[in-house]
Amino acid sequence: MITRFIARRAATLALTLLAASVAIYGALFLAPGDPATLLVGGGKEPSPGLLAQIHREYHLDDPFLEGYWRWLTNMLHGDAGQSLSYQDSVTGLLADRAGNTLFLIGYAALLIVTLGVTLGTLAGLRGGWVETAVTVMATTLMAVPVFVMSVALTWFLAVRLDWLPAYGSGSGFTGRLEHLTLPAVALAASWLAYVAQVTRSAVRAELLSEHVQTARGRGIGERFIIRKHILRNASAPITSISGVAVAGLMAGSSIVEQAFGLNGVGALLIQSAAKQDLAVVQAVALITVVAFAVINTAVDVLTAALDHRVPLGGHA
């Protein structure tokens, strides 16, 4: 049954990625006028020779399906084309910046999973003032946009207290850890709060469930009940929301990288979009969609494996 479930999810993933790739490539052709003029920018009338060069380089005169297939197969072989604004291969640009983005997202994901789940579990198990404090904190953090959080952390921890650097990505593991702490906290804050709230609700629901009350009535130890009955049954929704949170970090990373001056993929996307550098925007958009869809599919499979109540053979 689990094999069929995974096969169905894999097929859905493949169709989703195919549709997303068509939309990303086709977005260029939805703009009015000649797409080549969007790639020139600058507000000046481009020369016919330059327009012809762009048409040849991007195969804009080819039929849509032919151009799409060429672009997709090149992407699958690691060739994302050339950047007009940076005069470099898109693959090289992404490779130079991927390390900072992956470190940032990994750092933020670690904060979300460890702190969010821990705080939510404590709030759900203990209740009282602990639950109230966690709920107030989570509600506050969820209401603060990423950019505002970035500015607030920079002013307080970097400028006012001078505890952490506010700009750049540093070098080496220790340097990166120090420089990316503020960006990671800013990126993780709202998702951490969301995970904490979902964890609290899931743990509280299991704590008050009938099977837990029955186990206590039979004299089973509290630690065993928490580990085997409460946390185990609450693990499915916690895993699901944690996966969504980690996938959602990719969208917020662009804002954080710009705010803290990080030389990452997210900042490259914003800069390239401002310069109308099509090849870079298409490549980053496709990579982001692929990563988001793969993570969500993996979370679906893991959630189904953890929760026996998910119907593997039918509609999940």
Rank of each mutant, 00 (worst) to 15 (best):
E206G: 01
L192H: 00
A189T: 09
V203F: 07
Y194F: 15
V203Y: 05
L208C: 03
E210P: 01
R216I: 03
A196F: 10
L192G: 09
T199N: 03
Q197T: 14
A193N: 02
L192Y: 00
L208T: 09
L192M: 10
A188Q: 02
L207S: 13
Q213N: 15
W191F: 11
Q213W: 09
A196H: 04
Q213G: 15
H211W: 12
T214S: 13
E206L: 05
A205K: 09
A205Q: 13
A196K: 02
E206Q: 15
A189E: 00
R204P: 04
S201N: 15
A215Y: 00
Q197H: 05
S201K: 10
A205D: 14
S190G: 14
E206D: 08
V212T: 14
V203P: 04
V198P: 03
R204W: 09
A215Q: 04
Q197F: 02
L207N: 08
L207R: 10
V198R: 04
Q213E: 07
Q197S: 12
S209N: 06
T214E: 08
H211F: 13
Y194G: 03
E210Q: 12
R216K: 08
A202N: 06
S201E: 11
E210M: 11
A215K: 05
L207G: 01
L208Q: 14
Y194I: 07
S209F: 05
T199I: 12
V212H: 08
Q197E: 11
L208S: 15
R216F: 03
A193T: 03
R204S: 14
S190W: 01
A188P: 01
A202M: 12
S209H: 06
L208P: 00
A189K: 01
Y194A: 11
R204M: 12
S209Y: 03
A205F: 03
E210A: 14
A202I: 11
Q197W: 01
S201A: 15
L192I: 02
V198Q: 07
V203G: 05
R216Y: 07
H211G: 13
A202L: 08
S190F: 07
V212R: 03
A189P: 01
L207T: 15
W191S: 14
L192Q: 01
A202S: 15
T214K: 10
V198C: 09
R216H: 10
T214Y: 12
V212L: 09
R204H: 10
V212C: 14
R204L: 15
Q213F: 04
G217M: 13
A193K: 04
W191H: 14
S209W: 02
L208N: 15
Y194T: 06
A202G: 10
A188N: 02
R200C: 06
W191P: 02
A205E: 13
A205L: 10
A202E: 09
R200D: 00
A189F: 14
A189Y: 05
A215F: 08
A202C: 10
A188F: 08
